[in-house]
Design a binder for these strands. Structure first.
Lengths: 345, 345
DNA sequence: TACTGTCAGGCGAACGTTCGCGCGAACGTT
DNA sequence: AACGTTCGCGCGAACGTTCGCCTGACAGTA
């Protein structure tokens, strides 16, 4: 497809009767020019529809004004209901401060770091936003070695310092647990993830803290660590609920909604209705939480805020400003629906 | 943050004992060089970890190798479970052919086109992928006027020609309807969207075609056009199911899963179990379809394939090759679950 | 020997910016 | 009247590539 040549500084300059360097100055606000010259120049840029070439500018100033971002794809049967909001908010915030996002493919294992390396070496991005970070994340190590700026969405080993934005998962589970405690529940079980995940451990700690604060002893058999799947939640809850009614859990909190929905299903398979016969609280507030029966109480993360903060902190770093805080912890909120029995069902 | 200077062609050239232009030739495969010189050059690029500067190359060849993409954000309570797959597949395909995606914020109304214009004028992208296209889409008109390359994910007015990739929604609803017909259903209702949406009209036409082909007369009162929300589906189904049992619909197809789930709820509120007492089929195969009770039969779109195709066609256009086809129609598949009564529940 | 052809690689220019100086004219100061 | 000081703008260079043309050496032919 043949395109007419783009309009450049020189075109504008010719029309305004100055040299192109002067136009550049005016456009960048570093001008010492007569008001009337400036007016002519602006008039010319408008008339010609001139926009500076990002590529040329970027070459000259040796900065790409781009932020690299890659995410681990979810399994086909699961939804990443967060991506829309997270990406969207990052893109908006970035554009507002003159940046753009460069999404790049996720790669498995050792190859993962190569994706980051290539973008650095080819000068395509000025920094990165990481997500799905975990303990000993190889990307963090690599970027710190190369001294390349990044912000992580999520925390890693407490011992290493790096800029991050995270949602306080412990606070979230504390909220969920305290909710059940306040409704009078004392026999509360938890559906957790396998040990070794930063997010999982963190959320679980909130559950334990809430129990401890209320003086309710924890019962190891009521803490299941399994894959975060529907079936895992269903199986664990089925076991719990098979016990003596006066001795089984009356409340269940889960580290994500899928687990919680599995538990809800298990309960209903035994003829127990969540919200009436037991209470269930999930985490993530996936959109389906409101459409299932009974609607699922859940913990909602301020995702859009997180996305904005990630970009805000990173850009501050890139521009050499010291950000207000380089480690940001956001507080989630509890969304109470019928499954935890607060509302009539 | 201070970065060490990037390594450039000149660094490589110095190490290999040639001029930088020669290195450039070797790297781009346009070289007439002695095998041993070439070897030295490759060795040097590896040793120095050289990657060509994308910015400089892009300035020189006057192409950004970027594809613009913007999507309309979903309401906070709804999920865009497709975005992950669609974006991911586009990014992968793009990278494989040397391109990257540039996501940019969606804007409302007249401002929408400005986002596209700015990217064109600043030379940031070589072309666009559009999604959520509808009749009389202003972006299509604009891009055609500017003669800027694009591929639409979705169709628009039949009268105007442009390259697109789309999922055959009519075929999808035909699949769903024929499924119910084959199970013996003759009284089938449909939950559709308000008229005027290309996607909605197209899907609905598949329903009507299937009925006609089976010689089943359509009943206007069993065709509701409403917002695609849970409540709308629930309300419409509640009205239908309130009628005389021998005269009410025994099957319901919906243009999306949210409507279908609303219908499923309405049924259960009347003590009717989908899959036993009536059959329900949705569209989109949202992840929640498998977690609700009873699991929802639904039509699944080949989203990853669509993403890849969009990029493939666009890049062919950009490189001046004539793509195999500039209008691609993909066929969805039916995923049968308990709600349509095929399986035991 | 002189002429032609090929091979390997050098050379200059250009892509569209930004940036630091430089320079003449107008103005004010001694 | 001679001399600084601003003001307003121009000038040259540089960012890291790619591209077409040029050239020097060598070999083959007449």
């Amino acid at each position: 497809m043949l395109l007419k040549r783009r309009t450049t500084l020189k075109d504008v300059a010719a029309r305004a009767g100055v040299t192109y360097q002067t136009v550049s100055k005016v456009i960048n606000g570093r001008a010492q020019v007569l008001p009337e010259t400036e007016a002519r120049i602006w008039e010319a840029t408008r008339a010609l529809g001139y926009k500076p070439s990002h590529t040329a500018r970027s070459l000259r100033v040796q900065r790409s004004l781009m932020i690299g971002y890659s995410w681990v794809p979810t399994r086909p049967d699961q939804a990443n209901h967060i991506l829309d909001m997270f990406l969207g908010s990052m893109i908006e915030e970035a554009e507002a401060v003159g940046y753009h996002l460069l999404p790049f493919p996720y790669r498995e294992g050792d190859a993962q770091v190569n994706g980051y390396r290539e973008l650095i070496d080819s000068g395509r991005v000025d920094g990165f936003v990481l997500s799905s970070v975990n303990y000993d994340d190889p990307r963090i190590r690599f970027l710190q070695e190369r001294q390349y700026p990044f912000v992580a969405f999520g925390r890693s080993n407490p011992a290493i310092y790096f800029p991050y934005v995270d949602v306080d998962g412990a606070a979230g589970l504390r909220l969920a647990t305290e909710h059940l405690l306040s409704l009078g529940h004392r026999r509360i079980a938890v559906l957790a993830w396998p040990a070794g995940s930063q997010v999982g451990d963190n959320r679980l700690s909130g559950f334990l803290a809430a129990l401890a604060a209320a003086g309710v002893p924890k019962r190891p058999e009521w803490m299941v660590r399994a894959e975060g799947t529907f079936e895992a939640g269903r199986a664990a809850a089925a076991r719990w609920l098979a016990g003596d009614p006066s001795e089984r859990p009356t409340g269940i909190v889960a580290l994500n909604d899928t687990l919680a929905l599995g538990a809800s299903r298990a309960a209903q398979e035994r003829g127990l209705l969540p919200g009436r016969d037991l209470a269930i609280v999930g985490f993530d507030d996936a959109p389906m939480a409101q459409y299932v029966w009974p609607p699922l109480s859940s913990v909602r993360q301020p995702i859009r805020l997180a996305g904005r903060k990630c970009v805000e902190v990173l850009v501050a770093l890139l521009e050499g400003r010291t950000p207000a805080a380089t480690q940001v912890l956001l507080t989630p909120e509890l969304v109470v629906r019928a499954s935890s029995g607060q509302q009539q069902i």
